[in-house]
């Protein structure tokens, strides 16, 4: 299916929950979805007969701009062979977003990683703990304003 068809179908089902389709930036068109509805959108994308996005290829947390974080979903369909990019904006003041780990099992660890490094809270993730950094680590390193601490457990960090 072409991106326009997918977009129009989603727009007709979810209305306001789906933002405008952006095609002006390289390389692939994408659209924003509402962070509080992303689980329903994901389920629809997976189960709808004409889409069948059975695989979450990649989920990335991004420090998007001054006020927002973003979660980017790269989906692909093994059955039909098409791909899709969906983004969700999450305000830094209240970084909550619905988890899609029920829809794609792959999302569970990816969400934990995004939580660990960028710091958004995925509501509904069964095991939202730090995955890469130690559990007593402070802060989220991939935020642009992150300051590396002087010491961790008595070990000096800077060179």
């Amino acid at each position: 299916m072409e991106i326009n068809e997918i977009y129009n179908k989603l727009k007709s089902v979810f209305g306001e929950g789906i933002g405008e389709l952006k095609t002006d930036l390289p390389v692939r068109p994408f659209f924003f979805a509402d962070a509080s509805k992303i689980d329903a959108v994901a389920l629809f994308l997976r189960d709808e007969e004409s889409m069948q996005f059975d695989n979450l290829s990649c989920l990335s947390g991004v420090d998007y701009d001054k006020d927002n974080l973003a979660v980017v979903y790269h989906l692909c369909s093994y059955a039909l062979g098409h791909q899709l990019v969906v983004k969700c904006l999450v305000p830094k003041s209240d970084p909550k977003i619905k988890s899609v780990s029920d829809v794609w099992a792959a999302a569970e660890w990816h969400e934990r990683e995004a939580f660990d490094l960028v710091g958004m809270i995925f509501e509904g993730n069964p095991d939202l703990r730090r995955i890469l950094l130690p559990e007593d680590w402070e802060g989220h390193p991939l935020r642009k304003d992150y300051k590396v601490p002087e010491f961790y457990n008595g070990m000096k960090i800077p060179y």
């Binding site: 930036l25 390289p26 390389v27 692939r28 290829s57 990649c58 790269h74 990019v85």
Partner: peptide
């Protein structure tokens, strides 16, 4: 120095 944008390659 690419223009603003994004790419995903697998």
């Amino acid at each position: 120095k690419p223009v603003a944008g994004e790419s995903y390659v697998r």
